[in-house]
Design a protein around this nucleic acid. Structure first.
Length: 424
RNA sequence: GUGGGUGUAGUUCAGCGGUUAGAGCGUCAGAUUGUGGCUCUGAAUGUCGUGGGUUCGAUUCCCACCAUCCACCCCA
């Protein structure tokens, strides 16, 4: 047996969980003030949901899904993204009968993609994301982009760029596809192999190709922004106006096309410029056709996903992680075996008084207990030995100032709680 | 899926075709038996990634596999 986590997965160790919790707190706070409520959907869904929702021509569906048959011979897939499951939930429980818009967020949402791991890319990763249904207005798109932007900046991140684009709707996109294919047809021989495949399947993705060879060929290519219908164009202008009014800096980037099929109109990314290269922290957009495509009513939708591991990596790179919190307020040192239970009683009393308290369980020397308390960053230490039991008095030592208060043992939890609280 | 780098203690890494494989950090213990941070002393922990091959002899050289990291691809 190989005692090793599967490829592309990560353990969150005790020392690292506080930074996740810190991130979660900020995300929840950001959602709460915008009226988004948390939802939790299953880790796996019927494979068909993703085939239809994400799109069966996408790379995510074609080669990155964790798909298997369960014992009832159902095809099951571990979710590769967050939106499809939320839409399924919406339909299954007829949430669209509630007042619009329906605003939902998810946090620590585990997603799975079978890819070769590298920095910022795990096989299991966690997304924070928003979905809002039932409102077509671009102010909603702007609200979400602003929420993501303010969240990231509030976390202390800088070197961020917001890129927005509109990829039109089923009404105007075909015209763009035709124009683009017309432009590309004369240059096919110069494009990379992948792009030649994309030409028939999804020509818009060629714009997204990172190959310098292909980029070279794309000079003078038609822009989707010149082909938008009136409705999409107005929507895009509304979005820009709203973002401007909210002081969210943004760049129009007609190269953003996104890899998931369900997007319409708005698409956006928030990119962090790491020293090693750009990293997309957040990606999302509008998907007005998705709910209907999955068998529901015609219902507009907007959402984004934010990679939690990537945000944490950016925070680490920029040194804006939260400071390490002390583990305990008060450490109770035990001097002598007969005192073991009274020490636990005192520790428990301190905990009941609302303090973070700990004691010795391994029988260390007093000196070693002080060292241990120091490593836990304990702010106070109490020594409980036979002397204290006899006299009924204990000394509370402030580890920073070395001052000691003498207190009656009987009333210790309340007295100590007062002192510690006053000190905070 | 393609290409490249790296696998030695808990961790970061030295090291060498030849006896019992090392260091810093960390852990544990001690520095006259009831008081921490600094310092000093000591201790424990290794199938040298796995399996083959070359060799009198391999942790060291070669091959394969596995893992990991990085880039491409893709994306959060």
């Amino acid at each position: 047996m190989q005692m090793q986590a599967p490829k592309g997965t990560l353990d969150i160790l005790p020392a690292l969980s506080p930074r996740w919790q810190y991130l979660e707190e900020h995300m929840r706070a950001a959602c709460a003030c915008c009226g988004y409520r948390e939802v939790r959907t299953p880790v796996f869904e019927h494979t068909e949901l993703f085939l239809r929702g994400v799109g069966d021509t996408t790379d995510v569906v074609q080669k990155e899904m964790y798909t298997f048959n369960d014992k009832g011979n159902r095809s099951i897939t571990l979710k590769p993204e967050g939106t499809a499951g939320v839409v399924r939930m919406l339909l299954e429980h007829s949430l669209y009968a509630e007042p619009m818009p329906i605003k939902a967020y998810y946090l620590n949402n585990p997603c799975f993609r079978y890819e070769k791991p590298q920095s910022g890319r795990m096989r299991e990763f966690h997304q924070f994301g928003l979905e809002a249904f039932g409102a077509a207005n671009a102010t909603l798109d702007a609200e979400q982009i602003a929420l993501a932007w303010e969240l990231l900046t509030k976390l202390g991140l800088s070197d961020l760029r917001v890129h927005i684009n509109s990829i039109g709707c089923p009404g105007c996109r075909p015209a763009f596809h035709a124009k683009l294919k017309d432009f590309l047809s004369q240059r096919l021989g110069n494009l990379c192999a992948t792009c030649n495949e994309r030409f028939e399947r999804n020509p818009m993705r060629i714009l997204d190709c990172k190959s310098p060879v292909c980029q070279e060929q794309l000079h003078g290519a038609p822009s989707i922004l010149d082909c938008l219908c009136d409705e999409c164009n107005t929507h895009f202008l509304d979005l820009q106006e709203a973002l401007g009014a909210l002081d969210v800096p943004f760049t129009i980037d007609d190269g953003i096309v996104r890899g998931l099929d369900y997007y319409t109109k708005t698409v956006f990314e928030i990119i962090y410029d790491a020293p090693t290269g750009p990293l997309t922290l957040t990606g999302g957009g509008r998907y007005d056709g998705l709910v209907e495509m999955l068998g529901g009513p015609a219902l507009a939708g907007v959402g984004f996903g934010m990679g939690m591991e990537r945000v944490l990596a950016a925070m680490e790179a920029q040194g804006v992680l939260p400071p390490v919190e002390p583990l305990v307020d008060v450490f109770v040192c035990v001097q002598g075996t007969p005192v073991r239970v009274p020490a636990l009683v005192l520790t428990t009393g301190l905990r009941r008084a609302g303090l973070r308290a700990d004691t010795d369980y391994v029988g260390r020397s007093l000196k070693a207990q002080f060292k241990y308390a120091d490593k836990c960053a304990a702010r106070y230490v109490v020594v409980l030995g036979e002397q204290e039991l006899e006299s009924g008095n204990i000394k509370l030592r402030n580890m920073a100032t070395r001052e000691e208060h003498e207190l009656p043992l009987a009333d210790a939890p309340r007295r100590i709680a007062d002192i510690v609280q006053a000190d905070k």
